Simulated scan of single mutants.
Amino acid sequence: MKLSAPLFLLKRRAKLIARNNNVPLHKALDQIAREEGFAQWSLLSSHVAALSLSEMLLSRLDYGDLLLVAGRPGHGKTTLGLQLLIDAARYGRKAIFFTLELTERQARTHIRSLEKDTPGIGDSLDIVTSDEICANFIIRHLSGSPRGSIVVVDYLQLLDQQRNKPELSEQITALGDFASKTGVIVAFISQVDRSFDPERKRLPDIQDIRLPNFVDLTLFTKTCFLHNGKAQIHGVA
Rank of each mutant, 00 (worst) to 15 (best):
M1I: 07
F8D: 12
K11Y: 09
R13Q: 12
K15R: 10
L16F: 01
R19T: 06
K27Y: 09
A28D: 07
I32R: 01
I32H: 01
I32Q: 05
A33E: 00
A33N: 06
G37D: 05
Q40E: 15
H47F: 15
V48F: 06
V48C: 12
A49R: 11
L51G: 02
S52G: 04
M56G: 05
M56A: 11
L58M: 03
D62I: 13
D65F: 11
L66E: 07
L67C: 03
L68D: 04
A70C: 11
R72T: 13
G76F: 15
K77I: 05
I86P: 01
A89V: 10
R90N: 14
R93G: 03
K94C: 10
K94T: 15
A95R: 11
I96G: 00
F97Q: 12
E104Y: 08
E104V: 10
E104K: 01
R105N: 01
Q106L: 14
R108K: 10
T109K: 12
K116E: 12
G122M: 12
D123P: 04
D131W: 12
C134D: 05
N136R: 10
I139G: 11
H141Q: 02
L142R: 13
L142P: 02
V151D: 00
V151G: 03
V151N: 02
V153G: 12
L159Y: 13
Q162R: 15
E170R: 05
L175W: 03
L175E: 00
F178A: 08
S180Y: 12
K181G: 07
T182E: 06
V184I: 15
V184Q: 04
V186C: 06
F188D: 02
I189P: 00
S190I: 04
Q191N: 08
Q191E: 09
P198Y: 03
P204T: 13
D205F: 01
R210A: 09
P212N: 04
F214Y: 11
F220A: 09
T223S: 00
H227L: 14
G229W: 02
G229N: 01
I233E: 10
I233F: 02
